[in-house]
Computed example of a mutant assay.
Amino acid sequence: MEELLLRVVPGLAEQWKGATPDAIARIERIAGRPLPPFYRWFLSRMGQSMGRLAYPTLDFSAQRVLERYAEEWVEPHPRLLLIAHDSKEMMPTSLFYDLDAPARGDALVAAKEEGADEDDLYERFETLREMLAWSALSRFRLDKMPQRCGGTFSGDHPEILSLVEPVMRRLGFKQPVSTGPYCGLYERADAAMICKGMPRHGFDEARSFELGGSDAGVLRKILGEIATASSLNVEVDEWAPALA
């Protein structure tokens, strides 16, 4: 994870700053159980500053998390732990860990609107690791590529990405970090692709994708190989810039 972030996020090594051990311990006391190992790593590296990886309205800092609990904006909960406060004025949706949904040394990340019931959660990513890696590739690789497209892979197979991954390997792509069945991250020198599904909603028949590369011909070839070799339905909803 460190290799990926330091490689794709400009200046991150000089910008990120970790939280103090005391702040991490205070968050763990609020959680009432050991923190997921990945979250402990995240706080130790970026608990004060995420550098250019920071989100526009989401504050992941340990200080802000502790302030929100101290101000009783959010109460300690046996399952949900605030990890990012949303500062949007309209319909803010802060992020919480669901500590009862651990995965690969991490936990499920869900969004909840201010004042919403604890069961009214919108699952975002199966892990915080996948959320950060997905965002880094999207913002610092895909968004900078000359041609991009987005759409969906769909089919009857219960794990869509298990059909995509062998095709991507054959095309020379590597996966920068390991992921679960809902998130796919693929890179090669001239292209990158990110895929996403919704955890715990039973939407196993589709995954959204964003693909970027040097030109439309490269992207069409990649998608054509996936459609041919995997038997998945490949639907492109948008090209950016729009094709003539």
Rank of each mutant, 00 (worst) to 15 (best):
54 A>I: 04
100 D>I: 10
91 M>C: 09
62 A>W: 06
140 F>E: 09
123 E>N: 12
59 D>Y: 11
91 M>I: 09
150 G>W: 02
139 R>V: 06
124 R>D: 03
144 K>F: 15
56 P>G: 15
56 P>W: 04
135 S>A: 05
123 E>K: 04
125 F>A: 05
88 K>W: 04
61 S>M: 07
65 V>T: 15
75 E>Q: 04
113 E>T: 03
143 D>A: 12
148 R>A: 01
139 R>L: 08
131 M>A: 15
126 E>K: 13
68 R>L: 12
149 C>N: 02
99 L>W: 03
71 E>C: 11
119 D>K: 09
102 P>Y: 03
129 R>W: 03
117 D>A: 07
85 H>C: 07
99 L>S: 00
95 L>P: 00
130 E>R: 14
71 E>W: 11
109 V>I: 06
150 G>I: 03
145 M>N: 10
77 H>E: 12
132 L>H: 05
56 P>H: 11
154 S>C: 06
62 A>S: 06
99 L>Y: 02
99 L>K: 03
102 P>D: 02
114 E>Y: 08
62 A>L: 13
139 R>E: 12
150 G>S: 14
93 T>R: 14
138 S>Q: 04
109 V>Y: 02
124 R>S: 12
78 P>I: 11
85 H>E: 11
80 L>T: 01
83 I>F: 01
141 R>F: 06
66 L>M: 15
77 H>N: 15
52 R>V: 00
96 F>G: 00
114 E>R: 14
128 L>R: 11
94 S>I: 05
111 A>Q: 08
150 G>K: 10
152 T>M: 15
58 L>K: 01
58 L>F: 13
76 P>V: 02
115 G>P: 13
101 A>Y: 05
73 W>K: 05
76 P>A: 08
102 P>Q: 01
154 S>N: 01
148 R>V: 07
136 A>P: 01
94 S>N: 09
72 E>F: 08
71 E>G: 14
